[in-house]
């Protein structure tokens, strides 16, 4: 089944924003449906959050209690000060800053580079199109662990060791594949007619892309932003190798300090980890509603 033959966009704008798939259901189910869904949804949510609730509780007990036998779900002794300790630690704050900077800029770079490439691959036939898509995909097949020696050599020669620039470039390059592949799919599924209509209205190629196509691919963009930001946020081995100054280390590298073979601060490790999740969830909360957008043609004016 071809995508375009089915996808006939709702030209009605707001009407397209109705709830998900609405197909025939038995009557009785209709009535209890909201409750069933809520219960199921909340149960699944609890399942996903549970390990991290344990993590939070581990941050709220003395380090010695974290690995205590037998274990206890709630702390035997509550210790509220750990988050304060972490948040007033200048080293932690500088790691947090590095992570925020590297992850944000990497995400922007990926978007700027991937959107044109994805759009072009979706809309044009050109020689080497398949080769390009496969090349992009191939970049993902090399694990950074295997490439880190060469990456170090490269940035050493470019005199970029110990710079954010090196991390941003690496993160951007290694996360392009996802962005290009998923956005490519989204662009391809947008019917040609919409674009042609925009053309007739006098939009140029870039204008069409910016004003018409991007709003239509918002779910894809949101997924891409989420993915790239998280990947850059959690990158470890390249930052470990390229960054020398303690202040420029990202969180992932920095927080390995909390637990060593000689001194274990499990409470601080987990408190730091909880804090490290927060920016991602905030970012996600801010853009999540666009996932609902779906394919509406309301954007074409």
């Amino acid at each position: 089944m071809s995508t375009t033959s089915i996808a006939r966009p709702a030209a009605s704008g707001p009407a397209g924003r109705t709830a998900g798939p609405a197909v025939q259901r038995p009557r009785g189910y209709r009535r209890v449906r909201p409750y069933v869904l809520s219960v199921a949804g909340l149960a699944v949510a609890a399942l996903f959050a549970l390990p991290y609730v344990v993590m939070l509780l581990d941050a709220l007990r003395p380090s010695g209690d974290v690995l205590a036998t037998p274990p206890s779900f709630l702390p035997r002794e509550w210790q509220w000060g750990t988050f304060g300790t972490i948040l007033s630690d200048a080293r932690f704050l500088s790691w947090l800053k590095s992570s925020l900077l590297v992850a944000s800029v990497s995400t922007v770079v990926v978007l700027v580079v991937a959107v044109p490439a994805a759009y072009f691959t979706a809309r044009y036939r050109f020689r080497g199109r398949t080769a390009f898509l496969l090349l992009v995909l191939a970049t993902q097949m090399f694990s950074p662990t295997a490439l880190v020696v060469g990456i170090y050599r490269e940035f050493f020669q470019l005199n970029l060791v110990n710079t954010y620039m090196a991390l941003i470039l690496t993160n951007a390059a290694f996360n392009l594949a996802f962005a290009i592949w998923i956005l490519q799919g989204f662009f391809a599924s947008i019917p040609q007619e919409i674009e042609e209509a925009a053309h007739l209205d006098g939009c140029g190629r870039f204008g069409t892309l910016w004003r018409v196509m991007l709003p239509l691919t918002l779910p894809g963009l949101v997924t891409t932003v989420t993915f790239t930001f998280i990947a850059a946020w959690n990158e470890y081995v390249v930052a470990l190798t390229l960054i020398q100054d303690d202040a420029r280390k990202p969180l992932t590298v920095g927080i390995s300090s909390y637990v060593t073979g000689y001194e274990q601060n499990w409470d601080q490790l987990f408190a730091a980890s909880v804090i490290a999740i927060v920016p991602v969830v905030i970012l996600f909360a801010a853009i999540e509603k666009h996932l609902v957008g779906g394919l509406t043609a309301g954007a074409v004016k």
Binding site: F48, T252, S256, S273, A276, I277, V281, F284, A285, E288
Partner: peptide, 18 residues
């Protein structure tokens, strides 16, 4: 639903090492 979406993002947001 929003709670579910946020909860599902958490294992992804937490670094794999942690």
């Amino acid at each position: 639903r929003r709670l579910l979406r946020w909860a599902v993002i958490v294992p992804w947001a937490a670094s794999l090492v942690i």
